[in-house]
Design a protein around this nucleic acid. Structure first.
Lengths: 339, 339
DNA sequence: TTTCCGAACGTAATCGATTTCGATACTTGT
DNA sequence: ACAAGTATCGAAATCGATTACGTTCGGAAA
């Protein structure tokens, strides 16, 4: 490996001079600097990130924390898109990414310790149980963090706009004449709370009242749970005309149940999902859904984090709301009079 | 941050002694060592991975290289499952994961340089263009690598068994009476070559001859391409009775085309996919497909790499074949006489 | 008593890069 | 010609941990 010392010997200058030349300091003669850079290139010099990190106390490495109950881990499409986007944005600024977990090798440690051990300059926290003491410890530590879809007091966060998302969906199906709207929601997280609140608020504003039985509990990313919820809705004396699912993947479970009972989409039942995953765009009929802009979320999360890291003075905690977009699809039938 | 120096001061011993005590060297008195460990725990000492890496020349960090033409990046389900598995296995041995890419920040570098820059102890190379000079440079470098689904001479690799996979599929549909079997394949990679060869070989063994028009070219992970290929197959005078798709996701495109033309699965046309992604298990009818064991592939790749890293003497390059499993599903109709 | 040996611990170099504080030589002003 | 300023470069400390080698000391062997 070519080090700064090798170059210094070859150029008959000190290591200090080489370092300064390579980093563009002003107290080095222009010709000298040019020569050093030239030699460095010829010798195939690569800076050693480890040595740099040790000296500067900055690793140019950001951690990503993601835990999924279903332990599908990175298989989660919404998250893996966010991750990809975080990665790209981070790399643009010279940062690499490391996953944060508990228990690395024989060392038992919590998230904070792992991040500290790896000298992460910051951590992006996504899709975890935000009540987990280890997560809370990390967020409240000296390590800068940005959370996704959850806000900690006076910390930065990037949020998918669940309130408008749900409102848009409800207004859309309302616009197509639906009044008996059912909502199958995910487990009680802050995301669910927001969607649920927005669902009720919007229905109220539109002057429609939703019977209790139309609101069903299921689980995110779980076709089985939503299939069962769908079955319960279909068993009601007064069936809804439209069902909103917790996410696109869960919708598959509903779809199967509807098909099994001979209920056709959208002729006999209108449906909508949430997320706008790739699948929803290629399945026929195209699913009506609310597309969360995972790409923007990852990008903004990374940018926020880099701001905190590189300009800690000027930084103030912000919550950034990322708008999504309604994808109309073909699964919500227009049932207004005359259609 | 608590360093080894802090502990040494608190214990009135040298830093060397602390280091040795913490690492269980034998030339430290048992009581002294116990005391030091005790104090270290009390002070909340965490080793500094960076300093260790610098001194030892080992980062306990492995790189993952993955490039997707469709640039869906990590959104690729098959790969993200492999990644998750690699991550888990690596973490069990105390290794973290870093993504390798070109161009980190303003530094323009190739894969090898990036891996070197980050002091990766090894790299897992997956799903890239293996003819890319930068990839070849990395694989032939001093950095240990394990490739996935591709073999470089005298290098370790982990391979999904595409030959038996395809053979199993063909024999399965043959067993259900199909003789007119069409195969839509992906772009010309080594994986495609193997599947194609196995397809023809198996058909030969079974004594059925496949007209040229039954073999269609499309693209992996691309519903549109496979939809078009499907259309071409349906336009033939003599339609096949069964279509094999390059992967489950591509199958969606075929499914839509079939539905559009009023061709029912599996009544009028039998189909099979490849991969066994989550979706194929929840869609109805359940897709007949060959499940690649992504979890095993990631695990074995990580194990291989760690072997090379930790026991370079005893290591010999191997190619590990990971068997998959046929998922029968409900999309291949039995068309034998009397059924 | 002298010598030798092993247990236990310390000294100091080292990994590669950065940076503070000088140091030197050369200019410029007066 | 002398003081002051400037441009350019180097010496050495530093980041945190590891380790080869040296030192000390008590006890056993001669």
């Amino acid at each position: 490996m070519v080090t700064i010392t090798d170059i210094s010997r070859r150029c008959n200058v000190s290591r200090a001079t080489v370092s300064k030349a390579l980093n563009g300091h002003s107290d080095i003669n222009a010709e000298t600097a040019a020569h050093i850079r030239q030699v460095a290139k010829e010798m195939g010099y690569l800076p050693n990130a480890t040595a740099r990190a040790l000296k500067l106390g900055r690793s140019h490495n950001i951690g990503v924390l993601f835990v999924d109950k279903t332990s599908s881990g990175l298989g989660h499409e919404y998250f893996s898109q966010i991750l990809e986007s975080v990665k790209q944005e981070a790399e643009r600024s010279g940062y690499d990414i490391t996953f944060i977990s508990r228990d690395i090798g024989t060392l038992h440690m919590d998230y904070y310790e792992h991040a500290k051990y790896r000298n992460c300059d910051g951590v992006i926290v996504a899709s975890v149980d935000f009540t987990d003491p280890d997560v809370i410890k990390l967020v409240n530590s000296d390590i800068p963090t940005v959370t996704l879809d959850y806000v900690f007091d006076s910390h930065s966060a990037v949020l998918s706009d669940n309130v408008s998302g749900m409102a848009d969906l409800v207004r859309f199906v309302y616009g197509r004449g639906h009044r008996k709207i059912a909502f199958i929601h995910g487990e009680p997280t802050s995301v669910t709370q927001k969607r649920l609140a927005s669902f009720h608020k919007t229905c109220g504003e539109l002057g429609i009242s939703i019977p209790e039985e139309y609101v069903e509990a299921a689980t995110f990313h779980d076709p089985k749970a939503s299939g069962l919820a769908t079955r319960r809705l279909l068993a009601l004396k007064e069936r809804p005309t439209c069902i909103l699912y917790p996410d696109d993947f869960s919708f598959i479970g509903g779809m199967n149940e509807l098909e099994k009972q001979g209920v056709s989409i959208p002729k006999d039942m209108s449906v909508a999902g949430y997320d706008g995953i790739l699948l929803s765009q290629v399945l026929r009929p195209r699913l009506t859904t609310y597309r969360q802009d995972a790409e923007a979320m990852g990008r903004e999360a990374a940018r926020q984090l880099l701001e905190i890291i590189e300009r800690p003075k000027e930084w103030i905690p912000q919550q950034i709301m990322i708008p999504g977009r309604l994808l109309e699809g073909d699964t919500v039938r227009d049932i207004r009079q005359g259609f």
